[in-house]
Amino acid sequence: MIRTLTGLIIVLVLGAVAAAVIPEMQMREELQGVGYSYVSRGMDDTGSSNLVTAVIVAYRGLDTLGEVVVLFCASTAVVLILTLYPIGIKASEPSRVVAFTAKVLPAPILLFGVYFIAHSHISPGGGFPGGTVIASVFLLVMLGSSSVPDGRGRLPAIESLAGLSFGLLGFWGIMTVGQFLNNAFLGTGTPGTIVSGGLIPLISIAIGAKVASEFSGVFKAFRNTGGTV
């Protein structure tokens, strides 16, 4: 009862605030400031016809590097906690339906994930969603088999290599034109073609590999929590 009342009061107060504020807000019809400059110059600057990727990877590439570090810390923490305090759920045999699906679907999903990453500068997509899609293939294959992955494997190596290559691509800019994560020193190409967008496709591949291996490592840690069979 008290919970419902509190919720109702919060909703009413927030509604009143919104009703008071929204009519006063001056929505601009045209883009201003940095948004305008991204949209008007973005394609010429970066050679990427997907402006969202251009902003994430080229203009705000340093922020994305930080995001990658945040993701790395989060996945490391999950794996660490699961290793120290195992939940202790044993993996069970997959049913016939799941096992069959895990044989049929991985190839198209993997293709979709790779396409997502490789075309991040042309069509909607990018390293983060593409990497997640690829990690879902790993999860599906794992659910479709009765075996439990053991502690060995190359996932941490792939993860570190991908993170390192993101940083090295940034330093390449310092070596050539004196700017960290400069996007255009290789030339930007014709927007809309697969080889265009400067460093964007390379960084997308690095992000994709990193996200895919991180999420796969988290799934593997969950699978391992009952101990290896």
Partner: peptide
């Protein structure tokens, strides 16, 4: 894709609950 995945996930969930 929905026909292939959605029923399978429902099946897997139901089976996990059944255990």
């Amino acid at each position: 894709f929905i026909i292939l995945t959605n029923p399978v996930s429902g099946h897997a969930l139901a089976r996990a609950v059944h255990m």
